[in-house]
Design a binder for these strands. Structure first.
Lengths: 155, 155
DNA sequence: CAAAATAGTTTGAATTTCAAACTATTTTAG
DNA sequence: CTAAAATAGTTTGAAATTCAAACTATTTTG
């Protein structure tokens, strides 16, 4: 297929505008879907934190605060909330007792999987009708964005 | 090109995970780039608000709070901040003097354009090496996500 | 083994948010 | 035509979120 430069420019604008709107909406819908389920006490931010803690990684508080770019104090507060609500557990590392390893409770793991399923659904709907080569393109686009982000942040 | 079902499944996972990370990073980098420029007093949220107010729309406070899903009180507070910092103006609507129409000052318009340029750069880097038909696919993917979001929110 | 470094928590202040009450204005219904 | 209802936006007070700095407990280093 061929395209004039103007048509492509128009696509760029469309994509740029759509991206801004879509992300906002996804965050909102992700939270509201979760709140319709048995996990009514969870915010989008907490979802993100639970996703970062992950199923089997036993990450430390410092690791998580570095990844999420939250101060250690803020993360402690967030973890207290999630612990109170029964989603996460703190485990003292027996090799180095300064360190807390983080894990999900069974409730936390259920939530993780529900959220993961939602993301999958979203990606599947996004790529509906795409073949293997289309999907590879999509992947490439994301790699490009990651590269762009790296370049901008390291300059 | 041909792909096995397993390869495709792997791509789905990659895309799903990448999307989660990327959004977070974009927000952060967007703010940090803006803060390196003459607009040092602006947060990512304020950037989003300025984008929503837009260059020429003269939206009302209610419209903006509906779009951004912020309470009217919260929006009033945000607008006060941006007004104090010289980015926006409130204009009393002379047809209906209850209504405030919102506009950007020249400083606000400069910021809008700088942010817009950043988004364009991002999208351009994302689509580097893509031809017209690839780009159309990309557009389709976003339309698909929008449709998914609409379906989920209306069900 | 004492000093420095590290992991995580606590503290106090600043910011952001919301819902509800409030003010000003316009629309509606009798 | 006017009193009541509705609407647009602001104010208020409380709750939640965040951060940096001080702090506690533990481990590493010299």
């Amino acid at each position: 297929m061929n395209s004039t430069s103007d048509e492509i420019k128009d696509d760029y604008n469309f994509i740029s505008e759509a991206l801004i709107d879509i992300y906002d909406q996804i965050m909102r819908i992700e939270e509201s879907e979760i709140r319709k389920s048995r996990f009514k006490d969870i915010t989008a931010k907490e979802l993100h934190l639970i996703h970062t803690i992950g199923l089997h990684d036993r990450k430390t508080t410092s690791e998580v605060s570095r990844v999420l770019k939250l101060s250690k104090g803020t993360l402690t507060a967030n973890l207290n909330n999630l612990e109170k609500k029964g989603y996460i557990i703190r485990m003292i590392n027996q090799q180095d007792r300064r360190i807390i390893n983080l894990g999900l409770t069974s409730k936390g793991r259920l939530l993780y999987r529900a959220n993961y399923a939602f993301h999958r659904q979203l990606v599947e709907s996004c790529l509906k009708g795409f073949d293997g080569s289309d999907i590879r393109k999509m992947r490439q686009a994301l790699v490009n964005v990651e590269k762009f982000i790296d370049e901008v942040s390291s300059k």
